[in-house]
Design a protein around this nucleic acid. Structure first.
Lengths: 136, 136
DNA sequence: CATTCAATGATACAATGATACATTGTATGG
DNA sequence: CCATACAATGTATCATTGTATCATTGAATG
C-alpha cells in the first residue's frame, strides 16, 4: 500500500535535496495526491529511486514529521497524517481527562475510601492546585 | 478467563510501543484493575486489538515477566503474579488518597482543563467506579 | 590557501514485523 | 486408558524500518 512518488530532483539547483523532497511531499499533500493514512515509500526505497543517501530522505521525513504533516514510526514506516483539526485534538484531550479521572476513582475506591472522603480529598487537591497555579 | 484491556496506543509519541504496553499493564496492576491470577490477553489477541505485531506484545510481556510482575508460560498463556502492593524495584512510596488526588488534580490542570470540567469528569468516573464495584 | 559549516554519506543501532519453531492442553480414535 | 493429532500459546531468529552518530565533501569566507 505504499505509494509511489516518482519525481525528479534537480541536483544543480542549489536547493538542498532534503528541501526538495520536503517541498514535493508538501505539494502532494496539499494537492490531494497524498491522503491521510497513505504510507510513504521507506527512506531506503525513496533514496534508491532518487539516487541519494537514505539519511537525506530521513532528514526530509523528520522535518515533515516535526511539521505535523506525516508520522514516522521506527520499524513501521511513515504515514500521511490528517490535517490538524482543533476538534479532534479536543476529543483526544477529553479522552485523556476521562482516563485520568477513571484511574483516580478506581484506585481510591479500591483502597477502601468512601465516596464522601474521596470527594473531599479531590476538592481539596483541586483547590490547592488552582492556588499553586495562580501563585507559582 | 482472559481479561480485556482496551487501551489506546500513541504511535506518534516517540515512546516505543512495547514500553507503552508495559506501562499500561503496570498501571493496571498497581491500580488493582488487574489482580493476581488474572490471565492477560494472549500476545496475538492483544496485538490484533492494538494493531501491532504480536512480537511487540511478546516483548512487553517478557519485560514484565523479568520484572516478576507476570508469568508467561509457553503453550498456556500469561498471568498476573504480583500482589498489587508489592512494588518491584521502583517507587516504594506509600500510595495515599491525598497523593492520588493531588496527582490527578495537577495532571488535569496541567492539561489546561477548567475546574468545572475536571469536576464533571471526576464525578462521572466516581459514579461509574461505584456501580462497577456493586455489580462486577 | 586555511577555515568553517551545511549537506550528504557511511555505519552501527533500536523498534517493529514476518516466519518458523517448541511447548502445552485438549480432543479424537483405538 | 493411552496414543496420536491438532490447535493455541509463547519463543527464537532474522528481515525491515527509522534513528543516531560520526565522517566526508564542497562551497563560502577570511
Amino acid at each position: 500500500m505504499t505509494v509511489e512518488l516518482h519525481f525528479q530532483l534537480d541536483f544543480r539547483s542549489g536547493t538542498p535535496i532534503y528541501e526538495q523532497i520536503v517541498e514535493e511531499v508538501r505539494r502532494r499533500i496539499h494537492g490531494g495526491q497524498l491522503k491521510p493514512g497513505d504510507q510513504l515509500p521507506t527512506v531506503r526505497q525513496l533514496a534508491l529511486e532518487l539516487r541519494v543517501n537514505f539519511n537525506t530522505v530521513a532528514r526530509a521525513y523528520r522535518i515533515l514529521d516535526e511539521a505535523g504533516m506525516i508520522s514516522t514510526q521506527q520499524g513501521r514506516g511513515t504515514y500521511i497524517l490528517a490535517p490538524p483539526d482543533a476538534d479532534h485534538g479536543e476529543r483526544l484531550r477529553q479522552v485523556t481527562l476521562e482516563h485520568l479521572a477513571e484511574d483516580f476513582a478506581q484506585q481510591a475506591l479500591r483502597l477502601g475510601y468512601s465516596p464522601r472522603v474521596i470527594r473531599e480529598a479531590f476538592e481539596k487537591a483541586l483547590l490547592r492546585g488552582l492556588s499553586d497555579e495562580s501563585n507559582g
